[in-house]
Design a binder for these strands. Sequence first.
RNA 1: GGGGGCAUAGCUCAGUCGGUAGAGCAGCUGGCUUUUAACCAGCGGGUCGGGGGUUCGAGACCCUCUGCCCCCA
Length: 490
Amino acid sequence: MADDQIAARRQKRDLLREQGQNPYPDRWERTHALDAARVLPEGTQGVRVAGRVMLRRQVSKKLVFLTLQDRAGAMQVSLRAGTLPDEALATLLRTLDVGDFLGIDGAVWVTRTGEPTLDAKDARILSKALRPLPEKWAGLQDTESCYRQRYLDLLTNDATRERFRFRTRFVRALRDRLDAHGFEEVETPVLQTKASGALARPFTSHHNALDIDVTLRIAPETWLKRLLVGGYERVYEFARCFRNEGMDPSHLQDFTMLEYYVAYWSYEENMRFTRELLQAVVAETRGSLRFPCVGHDGVTREVDLGGEWPVVRMTDLIRDRAGLDVTALRDPAELRAWCRAHGVHDEGLDRMAWPSLVDLVYKRTVRPELLGPLFVIGHPIELSPLARRNDAEPGVTDRFQLLVNGWEVVNAYSELVDPDDQRARFEEQAAHRAGGDDEALETEEDYLLCMEHGMPPASGWGMGIDRMVTLLTGQTNLRDAVLFPLMRPL
RNA sequence: GGGGGCAUAGCUCAGUCGGUAGAGCAGCUGGCUUUUAACCAGCGGGUCGGGGGUUCGAGACCCUCUGCCCCCA
């Protein structure tokens, strides 16, 4: 039983105490990380390292090799009679387990097999682990355990460690590049009285001190645009957002979106910047603009972010890929009939107006097939209540989405800054809401008030960080890009 | 909401036709001063996810519940 192993380790901990050693001392002074210690010249003295014992090879009572691991790397350590005082060696032999944190003070030598090794003159257990680690070769494999006990996944699976390091680098590179372009990073509220900025169902809670109901934000959009009114010209936020909707490999309820807004830009300038930004950041963090992605059909294809990215109208995509000219099928009933005939089903099909039907057809039949990178433009205005109306074609918005491997990773547009048009759009949304669509936007009087004071022409942008990281690390589930995904309690 | 798959020792996994529960790692005991997943000898460790059923007999077959993964809505 596990209890046997835990009991054995507790006994070893107690033995340490009996020997006058604290199994949980308060500090250990290090001179080197393990990767640095590993390349020191043979004979270097006074090298102090610390790490977790990952492997133990006990050759005899007089010689033990350990593999120590820290954040940066790993190194072999030797505990030898003759170097380590006899009493210290004896105590370690009786109390040290794989999984314990160990501090070493020693000298570098190279073994017969050429392995750089730190020979311990002093070795202290820095934290006694009471439970065994997962199997040393295979690591933690069970999907559920990897999510519930990510620390063990990180500890035993190099790929997991590297994936989350990539996420950190990716976020940092985005931040650095935006900063270099004169953007200012801000933070806006997560708790708000009305969910806004996207068509989505929010989480709700109650604010006790004010005794009001609040929602968790579904997007930071209207807050960041208020800042444009307040004089900011280039602003961004890494925003944790929450949408109380269905969970699947490409949708989490708690996710991270990067949004930015730039005054005086149109969506077309934004599109150019998007490509330059992502090409630079991906090249920097991943080394290559080409990477494999597993499609919705399970087939692996190579995505290439290099060069120009095609710009295609949504209606053209539907015409070319689904063989349906929606612009010639303006009657919702006819469009619904087409959907039924082509296996496109949805609970709300009968209530959907033309724009929603177009969106449904696009999402079901076209989008999963788009390898990308590809900019999709020409979204119906009814689906974009915060986006600027196209001057030449009032039925569509100045909007683009970036598609990669069938996933929408960026959504952007020229911002709607005309307060009267914005009010009309809110009213249209209110009608949808009255008709039972609880994803429709709520009218935000405060936002209208703000806009009436004058909002500059601008273009904004939102990117799913989790989605990009998932794609760039060859994963197929957003949970593999999130350290601690929400799990149902056991 | 519907369908499919998975759940066996702390971990990684076998378990054939329904007939006494298996291996490796980890643990314990012993050996070995140059190992690299160290090795050698021995020992201990199981409510086979929970519950119910069929059967002389269930890890396996049936029902149900729980958790996880995937597909569809």
